[in-house]
Design a protein around this nucleic acid. Structure first.
Length: 717
RNA sequence: GGCCCCAUCGUCUAGUCUGGUCCAGGACACCAGGUUUUCAUCCUGGUAACGGGGGUUCGAAUCCCCCUGGGGUCACCA
């Protein structure tokens, strides 16, 4: 209890002012049920100040079977406050200090730690099936942390309307990390939310699976998928599928029926036009629009109309005066009724709305943690209302901030259209450019796209347009980053850092920023998730990618570059042929991405006679001092013609020996050669440069260079 | 506009809960210098931030209030 004074003793005199008495924590005496988190007790007992210490003074009996919590004790009832007072001096029994590093507004209701029995009971009540077994064969969990680890089931639930956006990838990554962190009891599942029949496509769903697999974000349950290296992802070991919502209609139908019967849901017959009119009127009257049931609504009559196939939607009756959402990153948020009117749960086409399907599926799939983008924060009270209507548990929620562009706007797929459109305007391109395959983009459509800021071209057309205009579009989707030659591990590393950080230091005092997915899974915690929206910094990603490429072994880089080229630039492979390993060695340290790796060795791709000499380089290297560079070239030609093994080390040795023998600096010898071989003064190491072009190529390039620049020799400088 | 969320170098962030060790640390970018046959790499150094105003306190980046700014959301999309 003398902690305070101990601290102050260490401080310089002017700071050693004693703390005021009220800094000392109050103590709440409480009786609690087994398995209940004491932080929660603090809240339940009305003492949510963190500095309050909860002292357990007994056990509350008979609170083990609350069906609403799947057989776990209801935390709200699991504590009885006994009294509040100053800490007694000598009592050290069962005290739990306030050691959680959380601000008041983040005091959160943690789930009681479920036992194996609890989980069994829970799973039965949900599915009438045995509970999920551990993935690995039963193994002894280490004592301590492992045995206390609750089951964690997370999911990523994309809607297949396009490629995977980086924001989605980050969400998936965090979900994955959370599940992996929980060890054998953790599961990460993938569910495809395809209830929007107009916008969903099989191809998009497939693309998202590919993107996820490429990133190494493996899902335990969900659509089956075979990776490029032959691993199988997905599947349905617990029997909670199918994982496409359009295949789950029967499940939803039953629940609709149930809600209709109990009167918690009701049919509503307004057309979309009616709704629009009502909204407009609300806006005119400057009030927030809320749907209200029509005067004189008659449930029996409404059901009758519905059964006679009259067009209608189903709405949930929501009567809660307020709904509290507890979010792992944002804390406790209280929502009032204007956030959740009687919203639609079944659309006119018979499909469930997102709100309905997400709540039902999360429950039925046993999802414990819902991690998603901030755009869903305002939807959460609706989901909680639905859970209450259906008698479901509420999962732990965590809403991640959005990823923004450097200008602060939301990073969006439209940004690619924006960039292309801006380039067209700037270059005064008014019709589909000629480089484009005929008919790739309809001229009228192109004009429309050019004029409408919100218009989007299909991604393949946009890609073709960019190619034709030699334009680099901003990378927004995972697929874009893959095409641009980023390493999947690097992207994951950077994405993880965009909104979270491990808060640890390296040995040299710098912040821990570089880590792999395994470390992420080990360290990830909501407590260190940043609330602020982060803007995406390509320069930093590029720096990460470059250093990761540099850190690879030569073999690994060669393999990665080859794999990338096979997919994105097969011409590079044919042009380089058996020179590829040599090219890879020269390119690696100079590459920021797999796409730009070819740039430093581009000279090796030119036809032999086509070297274009840079005028400045010629002046500086060949012409100076009466064309001494050209003279060196003549001599070097003889030397190089005599080199048997035309490979970097031998070539470097030969050039060095020549320079030394002639008493010249390396610069005087290397630079003329560079210009002769590449046309400019910049290239990889001289040995590599020469080896890449080959003996015949080197000699012919020297010959041509000497021929073209012979006039410089002997001329006055 | 209503509601919700957020606010430290140009950018990503540490520090905020538990006020003093912070005239604020790291990374990327940028600038300068060095190593090297050019480039790249590598090394050394530097510029650079607590949005504004009140309050609490001996003391505020840190706690409270207001303002401002940014973002999100208000669908039979997800």
């Amino acid at each position: 209890m003398d902690l305070v004074d101990d601290i102050n003793l260490e401080r310089p005199a002017h700071r050693a002012v004693p703390r005021v008495r009220d800094q000392i924590p109050h103590v709440v005496h409480a009786r609690v049920a087994r398995g209940v988190d004491l932080d929660h007790v603090r809240v339940a007992a009305g003492h949510d100040r963190l500095r309050h210490v909860v002292r357990v003074v007994g056990v509350v009996q008979g609170l083990g079977e609350d069906p609403g919590h799947g057989g776990l004790p209801d935390p709200a009832r699991a504590a009885e406050q006994v009294g509040v007072g100053d800490p007694p001096r000598r009592d050290r029994v069962l005290q739990r200090p306030c050691d959680r590093r959380l601000p008041d507004h983040l005091v959160k209701i943690r789930r009681p730690i479920p036992t194996r029995q609890d989980r069994v009971a829970h799973a039965r009540s949900v599915r009438g099936r045995p509970p999920p077994g551990p993935r690995a064969p039963a193994r002894r969990t280490p004592r301590g942390i492992g045995s206390l680890m609750p089951q964690v089931i997370t999911r990523f639930a994309p809607s297949p309307t396009g490629h995977l956006h980086v924001g989605g990838a980050r969400t998936a990554l965090f979900c994955w990390a959370l599940a992996r962190q929980a060890g054998p009891d953790g599961r990460f599942l993938l569910r495809v939310e395809d209830t929007d029949r107009a916008r969903s496509s099989k191809a998009a769903a497939r693309g998202i699976l590919e993107d996820l697999a490429w990133l190494g974000i493996d899902w335990d349950e969900g659509p089956a998928f075979t990776t490029e290296d032959g691993r199988t992802l997905g599947g349905d070991p617990r029997g909670v599928g199918p994982f496409f919502q359009t295949q789950r209609l029967e499940i939803y139908e039953k629940l609709f029926e149930q809600l209709l019967e109990s009167g918690q849901a009701y049919p509503s017959f307004e057309t979309p036009e009616d709704m629009a009119a009502m909204r407009e009127q609300a806006e005119r009257e400057k009030r927030t629009f809320r749907y209200t049931q029509p005067e004189g609504y008659d449930h029996a009559r409404a059901l009758e109309r519905m059964r006679s196939a009259e067009a209608c939607v189903l709405r949930l009756r929501v009567a809660q005066p307020e709904i509290v959402v507890t979010d792992e990153v944002r804390g406790r948020i209280v929502f009032t009724p204007e956030h959740y009117d009687d919203f639609v749960i079944r659309k006119g086409d018979g499909f469930p709305t997102y709100h309905f399907a997400v709540v039902v599926d999360d429950e039925l799939m046993g999802v414990t943690h819902v991690v998603r983008g901030e755009e869903h924060l305002n939807n959460t009270p609706k989901h909680v209302a639905l859970q209450q209507a259906l008698g479901y548990r509420t999962p732990t929620y965590a809403h991640l901030s959005l990823i923004a562009n450097p200008d602060g706007s939301k990073m969006s797929k439209r940004d690619k259209d924006k960039a292309a459109r801006a380039a067209c305007h700037e270059r005064k391109v008014g019709t589909p450019p000629p480089g484009l395959a005929a008919g790739a983009i309809d001229a009228a459509r192109f004009a429309e796209w050019l004029g409408d800021k919100k218009s989007q071209l299909p991604s393949d057309q946009l890609q073709a347009l960019a190619r034709a205009m030699h334009l680099t579009l901003p990378e927004i989707e995972v697929e874009d980053f893959r095409r641009s030659g980023y390493l999947p591990e690097t992207l994951c590393n950077y994405l993880a850092l965009l909104g979270w950080n491990p808060g640890e230091k390296n040995d040299d005092g710098t912040d821990l920023e570089r880590f792999d997915k395994a470390a992420l899974a080990q360290k990830f915690a909501f407590e260190r998730v940043i609330k602020k929206a982060a803007s995406f910094d390509r320069a930093k990603l590029l720096a990460f990618n470059q250093s990761d490429i540099a850190a690879m072994t030569a073999e690994a880089f060669e393999a990665a570059w080859r794999a990338w080229a096979e997919r994105e630039n097969p011409g590079l492979l044919t042009a380089l042929a058996d020179r590829f390993p040599l090219a890879a060695r020269a390119a690696q340290i100079r590459a920021r991405t797999l796409a730009d790796a070819a740039e430093p060795i581009a000279f090796a791709l030119h036809p032999q006679g086509a070297v274009e000499f840079d005028a400045k380089a010629v002046q500086k290297v060949l012409a100076k001092n009466g064309g001494e560079g050209v003279a060196v070239l003549r001599e070097m030609r003889v030397v190089l013609a005599g080199v048997e093994a035309f490979e970097p080390v031998a070539l470097d040795a030969a050039v060095h020996a020549f320079a030394e023998g002639r008493g010249l600096g390396m610069g005087k010898v290397a630079q003329p050669l560079r210009v002769a071989i590449t046309g400019g003064t910049v290239s990889p190491g001289l040995g590599e440069t020469l080896a890449l072009v080959g003996k015949a190529g080197v000699l012919s390039r020297i010959d041509r260079c000497v021929e073209v620049h012979a006039g410089l020799e002997g001329a006055e400088a």
